[in-house]
Amino acid sequence: MNELESLSWSEDQIDALTEIMNMGIGVAASSLSEMVGEEVILNIPKIRLVSRHDISQELSTQCPEGMSYVFQDFSGTVHGRSALLFPIQKSFNLVKALLGNIEIDDELTEMEQEALSEVGNVILNACIATLVNNLALEIEVEIPQYVRGGAVSVLLEGDTQLDHSQTNLFCAVNFSTRESGIEGYVMFLLELPSVKTLKNSLEEYLENIMSL
């Protein structure tokens, strides 16, 4: 049994994390709606806690051609990497859905990539902000970067400042938009000390709620 599993997350903790992500995705949806001037609906996310290795395998099998992703690194009381991932083709669909009927061939222009970065930024920031707000974390988040069609393993193991020897928490939020049927993943990659911090913060958060 590795250390991640030995941390034994309670159902309450998972519920609390789901609730926070839920709020985040809700904020993201309304921000996106405001940006594009029409309603954007993001479905209620499902949360899983998995090891980096497992999700790397899973996504490689699911999307052998690689995925497009927007990622933002963060550091502070917890540090790690947050990312929004889509199967390559779906990332065009998202840009199309949000920007209207623009002509997109198999390459996104830099401007379109920036637009996609912003979409990722809105969703990721909303999730991070609710986490930070509710769990009283102190972090600083870098600007988002967009990578098209990269191997997922690069995102998960590439140039992160994370210690590879330790098991990392991977928290995957599976969300989708209702109309265009775009599915994506939000994930957080944290190394073990950060996972412990996050878990402690969740415990405090739960105690606060109970004591109300």
Partner: peptide
């Protein structure tokens, strides 16, 4: 919150 954003 110490967060970065990009606006396109």
């Amino acid at each position: 919150l110490g967060m970065s954003s990009v606006l396109s």
